[in-house]
Amino acid sequence: MFPDLPSYRCSCGRRPTPSVERWRCDCGGLLDLPAAAVTWSPRRGDHSLWRYQDAIAVPGRELSLGEGMTPLVGASPDGEEGVRLKVEYASPTGSFKDRGAVMLVALARLLGATRLVADSSGNAGTAVAAYAARAGLAAEIFVPAGTSDKKLLQIRGHGAQVTVVDGSREDTARAAVERVEATGAFYASHVYNPYFYEGTKTYALEVFEQLGETAPATLVLPAGNGTLVLGAYLGFAGLRAAGLVDRLPRVVVVQAQRCAPLAAAFAAGREDVEPVTPEATVAEGIAIAAPPRGTRILEIVRETGGAVVTVTEEEIARAHAALAAQGLWVEPTGAVSYAAVRRLRAEGSPFMEGAVVAPLCGSGLKASL
Results as ranks from 00 to 15, higher is better:
residue 1 M to V: 05
residue 6 P to T: 09
residue 7 S to N: 15
residue 9 R to S: 05
residue 12 C to Q: 08
residue 17 T to M: 12
residue 19 S to Q: 06
residue 33 L to C: 12
residue 38 V to M: 00
residue 39 T to F: 04
residue 40 W to C: 14
residue 43 R to S: 04
residue 53 Q to L: 12
residue 55 A to D: 09
residue 55 A to W: 12
residue 56 I to M: 15
residue 58 V to F: 02
residue 61 R to C: 00
residue 64 S to V: 06
residue 67 E to G: 09
residue 70 T to V: 13
residue 71 P to M: 12
residue 76 S to K: 05
residue 77 P to Q: 04
residue 77 P to H: 03
residue 82 G to A: 03
residue 93 T to L: 12
residue 95 S to M: 02
residue 102 V to P: 09
residue 103 M to I: 05
residue 103 M to H: 02
residue 104 L to A: 12
residue 105 V to Y: 11
residue 105 V to G: 05
residue 108 A to Y: 04
residue 108 A to I: 01
residue 112 G to K: 08
residue 113 A to M: 11
residue 114 T to R: 15
residue 116 L to S: 02
residue 116 L to F: 07
residue 118 A to S: 15
residue 121 S to R: 10
residue 122 G to Y: 08
residue 123 N to Q: 01
residue 131 Y to A: 06
residue 134 R to Q: 14
residue 136 G to P: 10
residue 137 L to G: 13
residue 139 A to L: 04
residue 139 A to Y: 03
residue 139 A to K: 05
residue 139 A to M: 04
residue 141 I to C: 10
residue 144 P to Q: 10
residue 148 S to N: 13
residue 151 K to M: 13
residue 156 R to W: 00
residue 160 A to C: 04
residue 162 V to C: 04
residue 162 V to R: 04
residue 164 V to L: 01
residue 167 G to E: 06
residue 172 T to M: 06
residue 173 A to M: 01
residue 174 R to S: 14
residue 175 A to Y: 01
residue 178 E to L: 06
residue 179 R to V: 00
residue 187 Y to L: 13
residue 193 N to M: 05
residue 196 F to R: 08
residue 200 T to R: 01
residue 203 Y to N: 11
residue 204 A to C: 07
residue 207 V to Q: 10
residue 211 L to R: 11
residue 213 E to G: 03
residue 215 A to F: 13
residue 218 T to I: 08
residue 218 T to P: 14
residue 220 V to N: 04
residue 221 L to R: 08
residue 224 G to F: 03
residue 226 G to N: 08
residue 226 G to V: 11
residue 227 T to L: 00
residue 229 V to K: 02
residue 235 G to E: 02
residue 236 F to L: 06
residue 243 G to M: 10
residue 245 V to C: 05
residue 246 D to N: 06
residue 246 D to W: 06
residue 263 A to D: 04
residue 273 V to E: 08
residue 273 V to H: 03
residue 284 E to K: 14
residue 294 G to Q: 01
residue 297 I to R: 10
residue 309 V to C: 01
residue 310 T to S: 09
residue 310 T to N: 05
residue 313 E to M: 07
residue 314 E to L: 11
residue 315 E to P: 12
residue 318 R to G: 10
residue 328 L to S: 02
residue 331 E to D: 14
residue 341 V to M: 10
residue 346 A to L: 11
residue 347 E to L: 15
residue 348 G to C: 02
residue 352 M to N: 03
residue 353 E to A: 15
residue 358 A to I: 13
residue 359 P to S: 02
residue 360 L to K: 08
residue 364 G to F: 13
residue 367 A to H: 13
residue 368 S to H: 07
residue 369 L to I: 09
